[in-house]
């Protein structure tokens, strides 16, 4: 299933318009979720966020790089406690890493006009997500991209030979984000926090669909039967201050 550049550009414009509209209140909404009257519920231990068994030497292909599974699976998340601010700061850092990844992809000059439009829109989405999570993280926010995430993706972008290679990296990033939010739903105890994650996961998934179609992938490749946690990013392995 393929999509034309013109159609892609049109879709990108539509996405941008509605995204801006939707973002109008997200800062306040997210702040309320995390620091409103429900905030004390969120202040509890996040041990489950950091639990599960590791998978030894298993590896997963992330773009063109084989990454030890232990770096990707939340199973390896440490036996330590993360606060709400820590979690929000981690999300902020990952979103900012995505912003930089899209910028780097655009700067390669390998993307055609229509795809650049899409990349710019998705980059802006991630930037606005980062702003929102930064506001939630408050003092824990760093305003910096997650260096460990960039250490994985930046070399791939630099070595990308063509547009498809870059789109594949972007899709990997979006799928990784969706998996991370999926796993977080098995960790966050508060219903409002879970609802917030549940409204973000589908959007990252839809980004992955658009990128998959641009890559000309088979339908089954970008529409799995179940969302899983493969590729989820661990805050321990990808620390905020990397």
């Amino acid at each position: 299933m393929e999509i034309t550049t013109r159609a892609l550009r049109q879709l990108a414009d539509d996405v941008d318009d509605q995204h801006r509209e939707a973002m109008a209140t997200v800062h306040e909404d997210l702040r309320e979720v995390h620091f409103g009257e429900t905030s004390r519920v969120l202040a509890r231990s996040r041990r489950r966020f950091l639990r599960d068994a590791g998978l030894g030497g298993a590896v997963l292909t992330l773009g063109s790089t084989l990454v030890p599974m232990a770096r990707l699976m939340p199973a390896a998340w440490a036996q330590e406690t993360l606060s709400d601010g820590d979690l929000a700061a981690f999300a902020e850092s990952v979103e900012l890493a995505a912003v930089e990844a899209y910028s780097a992809a655009i700067d390669t000059g390998l993307l055609d006009g229509g795809v650049v439009d899409v990349a710019e829109i998705f980059r802006r989405h991630h930037s606005e997500h980062a702003d929102a999570f930064g506001a939630v993280a408050s003092d824990a926010a760093t305003g910096e991209a997650n260096q460990a995430v960039l250490d994985v993706f930046a070399p791939q972008i630099g070595e990308a030979a063509d547009q498809d290679a870059l789109l594949q990296i972007a899709q990997d990033l979006e799928n990784g984000a969706a998996a991370t939010y999926y796993f977080s739903l098995g960790v966050l105890q508060d219903r409002d926090a879970a609802l917030a994650a549940a409204t973000v996961l589908p959007i990252e998934s839809q980004h992955a669909v658009v990128l998959g179609q641009a890559l000309g992938q088979d339908l089954e490749e970008y529409v799995p039967t179940f969302q899983g946690q493969e590729g989820a990013l661990s805050p321990r392995e990808y620390p905020v201050n990397g």
Binding site: L185, G186, V209, V223, P224, Q227
Partner: peptide, 19 residues
């Protein structure tokens, strides 16, 4: 938390269907 995760293991896919 397990049920929340489970329901979104499906909900995320429905969102892909939407797209």
């Amino acid at each position: 938390t397990t049920l929340r995760q489970a329901i979104m293991g499906i909900g995320g896919v429905e969102a892909r269907h939407q797209a």
